[in-house]
Structure formats: C-alpha cells, structure tokens
Design a protein around this nucleic acid. Sequence first.
DNA 1: TAGTGGTCTAGACCACGCA
DNA 2: GCGTGGTCTAGACCACTAG
Lengths: 240, 240
Amino acid sequence: MTLLKRNSTEKIYSQIANVLRQDISQHYQPGDCLASEFELAERFQVNRHTIRHAIEALIQEGVVERRHGKGTFVLTQPIDYTVAAKTRFTQTLKNLGKTTSMQVRRKVVMPAETGVAQHLALKPRDPVICIETLRLADQQPICVSSHYFPQCHFPDFLELYQTGSLHGFIQQHYGWPLKRIESLVSAVLPQGDDAALLSMPKSQPILRVKSINVNERDGTPLEYALTRFCADRIQLRINL
Amino acid sequence: MTLLKRNSTEKIYSQIANVLRQDISQHYQPGDCLASEFELAERFQVNRHTIRHAIEALIQEGVVERRHGKGTFVLTQPIDYTVAAKTRFTQTLKNLGKTTSMQVRRKVVMPAETGVAQHLALKPRDPVICIETLRLADQQPICVSSHYFPQCHFPDFLELYQTGSLHGFIQQHYGWPLKRIESLVSAVLPQGDDAALLSMPKSQPILRVKSINVNERDGTPLEYALTRFCADRIQLRINL
DNA sequence: TAGTGGTCTAGACCACGCA
DNA sequence: GCGTGGTCTAGACCACTAG
C-alpha cells in the first residue's frame, strides 16, 4: 500500500502513474506482468477506473501494453527520451557491430498499387513481386520492410529466392547492380501489424523511409522499398 | 440524434467516433468547436463518459483537441494517412512555391550542453548563441528550429542579427560560407512547446533533424541546428 | 455565474486467454 | 470457470474560461 496525497494539485492517477513508472524501472524486467487492475486498485485504495487512467498514461508513454485477458506487460525497450542516449549512431544495419538477422515474412505477386507503380515506372496493376522482411539486431526487431520488384524484370524470383540479402540475390542471379537514387523520409504512427512486429507501442512514432533503387547501368527502376524503423532504436545519418 | 447499433460487435464509442469523424470532415472547418460533451451525450443517448471515450480516439488520431473550459476543437490540418496524399514532396522550405515566413522566438547566449558542445567541437559550458525560430509556409507552421553557434566565432551576433536568413546573415557579416556536412534524422513525439507552436496534437510524431554546418573553407563547425518538423506536413527527400 | 472539460467513484456486464 | 482487461452507465465534484 502506497500513500497518495488526496488533496494535492497533482492528480491521483498521475501520482499512481509515477509510482508505477518508478516501480517498473527499479523492479521489473521487460516482459513482466504488472499486478492486475483490481489488485492495484486495492493497493492504492482507489477505484479501478483510476488505475486504468494511470495505466493509459504509461501506455501513451510506451512503458507498458495491455493484453486482453492476460494482463498489463512491461515493454521490451523502456523508452528513453534523453538526447544524450541518442548520441551513438549507426550508419546502416549492416554496419552495426551487432549480430543481425532477417526474416522473410511474406512473398507474393500482386498487382501494383498506384504509388508503387509510379515509383517503378509501371502501369497500375502491373504485376509486382512483394517481399516483406523483418530485420533484427541482437534479437531486437529494428525494422520491417516491404520490397516491390517489377515481375517483368524478375522471372522466377519467387521460386529462386529463399532468404538472405535481396540485393545480393539480384546481383547474383540477374547480374544487375542496384543503386539507390532517392530516399523519402517521413514520420508516422505505426499502422497494421507494424507495432506488434517491432514490439513497440502503437503510440510511438515510426521512421518511414521510401527508397528507390535502379539498375546502375541504365537507370531502370528495379526496386521500391518502404521501410519502417522503430524510431527509438534507430536514427538515420545522412552524410553529404 | 443518430442511431447506434447497441448489439453490434463494433463498440459504441467507436461508432460515435466514426460519426464524429465524418461530421467533422464534411461540416466542420479547422478551428471549429464541437458540441459539448453533455450535448453529444444527449444526441447519441449515451453516457457522457462514452462520448469522452470516443473523443479520446479522435484526439489520438490528431483530429481534434480539448481545451479545458472552452470546448473540443477541430485541428487545423486534418491528418491524412493515405500514401497517395504524400506523393508530392518539397525539397526544402525555400524551394516551396508557397509564401514562407519566419519568426525569431528566442535569442540568448547560454552555456553549451554536452550534446551541443560535442557537435560544435567545444568544451561543455562554453558559451553558445541559441536562436529559436518558427517557420511557416502559407501561414501554416512547418517547423521549429534551435540553432546553436559558438560565441567565440560570432562576436556581436545577438546585437547585429535581427531577423531573416541566418546563413545569409553569417555570410554577409562574417564572410563565411556554410556547408552542411551531416544530418541525423529521427522521429519522436513532440516535447515542450513544440506541439503548440506547430499547432499539432501531442500524439502525432515529429521529424527531428540534427544538422551540422561547417565553414566550407577550413571545416570549422559553426552551427548545430535541431529542427522539428510537423511530420504530416513535410517529408524529407534525400537525393544521392 | 453558467458552461465547459477533468477527475474520481461505484457497480454492472462483456470478451478474451488459459488451465 | 476463473481471472484478466474492455465497455458502459450513473452521479458527484473540481478546475478552467468567459461574459
């Protein structure tokens, strides 16, 4: 039982959130489950709704997440907003000294949506190969990517490619060196499954990079990739 | 009075949020005030807390914001997540065909924090000039920036500089051409006054760009700038 | 002072996950 | 079936804003 100031200007739910935040940082590990809302309500001697309000705040901050029927869980990577913690940068995932790995989550042929078609200089609904990947560094998910390739240039792509570096595969099987000509960077909130795949809260931002790769020899667009980085785990460094 | 499906799988608060979202997009202008929570509760025949829940969702999406004692207001720029709407890009603010303007919000000399000192090759707490600016395009706030200059290289900076292009001023008064050598891009939620200055919701992401400018002749770091873009109004284009 | 949003309580029932 | 979180109701009082 923790004492709360009932007549303080600081709201009770806010006091509770502070206590929980501190508890979590001191006594909990990522993946741990908090006491149930009912138990917390008893401990703090408040209504369960007040506990919910406090937990909402922690969810918003990215400290915990709720799982229906299971409990409220501490997230893997407590988010640190201090600028000092971001003074170490990485150039690319490959350049990280960390152990990296990649999972292929989806391989399909589909008609190109207008945006994809534009970037690849195709007609809308022309067939494109879509490959979705998840990349990790030290077991930690870093980014999910959707890669689009015009099928006309890559017969048998789906049959031949299994896993591993996409650009390496293209270089090896088709003999085409890829060159990045453009990147478009924006920040959005996570959509679809991205938050779950990156094990991050839905309230935290994503760095989204659209990149276009062309055949270095003749400039033909060969790949359009849309990569979503968990923003608190990555920072883009652009050298000019 | 709008009809709700009480026995639908779709939650009532969610149905209400949908109705309100549609109402707003069709019949409201940015800055308009919604009906009060009490009135909405009567209109939809639900408890006021259910209305609050629905409005929470709209706040999270960035559609509206609450102002204590005044009401719930439609935000200036309804956020559009469709990728198609982002296929027009801007290179820099100056290259926009739009009318741009700039406000200087703060001019002070302060001891350098460690991060700033590092980027400018100074010792911590060496004096730096800090200038905070807000830039607008067509009356719409686009970004806020904190510019840091080492005071040792810029005597009388604060006295001489009033407003207008910072790089133009430096070129003119000190004769130094600035060159950007590096940009670091990250995505965060707004901190401090940034959300208010950019008239954006606190739940929506910010694109943060740290850039370092050096004297083109000898490579001396002369400026460190931290710019925060309202992410739904800007996209960075990086040409390689 | 009237009207708005903000907080807190109390209690009910539902939906999900798991043993 | 039990415990978890999710939704909804009802009512009270507080804090802020504006006339």
